[in-house]
Deep mutational scan, measured.
Amino acid sequence: NKFNKEQQWATYEILNLPNLNEEQRKAFIDSLKDDPSQSANLLAEAKKLNDAQA
């Protein structure tokens, strides 16, 4: 299913963002699990935070 693929991709991407700390990473991944339909939005937020902390 589409959300499952998006969720897996977003999880992979978030795990590989270098500037997030473990707590932030875990929070994003927990949110992905809670609502896979928000995968794209959550990934965008994670990338923004990652860039802000660069």
Rank of each mutant, 00 (worst) to 15 (best):
F3A: 03
A54V: 10
P18W: 04
D35R: 09
S39P: 03
A46I: 02
R25A: 07
L49G: 01
E13G: 05
P36N: 04
D30S: 12
F3D: 15
L15H: 09
N41W: 13
K48P: 00
A52S: 13
S39K: 04
I29K: 03
E13M: 12
S31H: 11
K33T: 12
E45M: 09
N50E: 02
N16D: 07
D51S: 11
K47F: 09
A44E: 15
A52K: 12
A27T: 11
E45Q: 12
A46F: 02
Y12H: 13
L42F: 09
A27P: 02
Y12D: 15
L49I: 10
E23K: 11
Q38F: 05
N16P: 01
E45S: 07
D30I: 05
K2R: 05
I29T: 06
D51F: 08
L43G: 01
I29Y: 04
S31D: 07
A54F: 08
D30P: 00
L17A: 01
K47I: 13
I29S: 03
N16W: 07
A10N: 03
P18G: 05
N1H: 13
P36Q: 02
N21W: 06
S31R: 09
N1G: 08
S31W: 12
I14D: 01
L32K: 00
S37T: 09
R25H: 03
L32A: 04
L17N: 01
D34M: 14
S39E: 04
L42W: 08
Q8I: 13
N1S: 02
L49V: 11
L42E: 02
E6R: 01
A44Y: 06
L17R: 00
N41Q: 11
K5N: 13
D34W: 11
I29N: 03
S39W: 15
K47R: 03
S37N: 06
D35H: 12
P36I: 04
F28D: 00
E22I: 07
N19W: 14
K2W: 06
T11S: 12
L20N: 00
Y12N: 14
K33D: 07
D35E: 08
K47L: 07
E13Y: 07
A27E: 12
Q7F: 11
Q24N: 02
S37Y: 05
K47V: 11
A46N: 00
W9E: 15
A27N: 13
A54N: 13
E22D: 13
E23S: 10
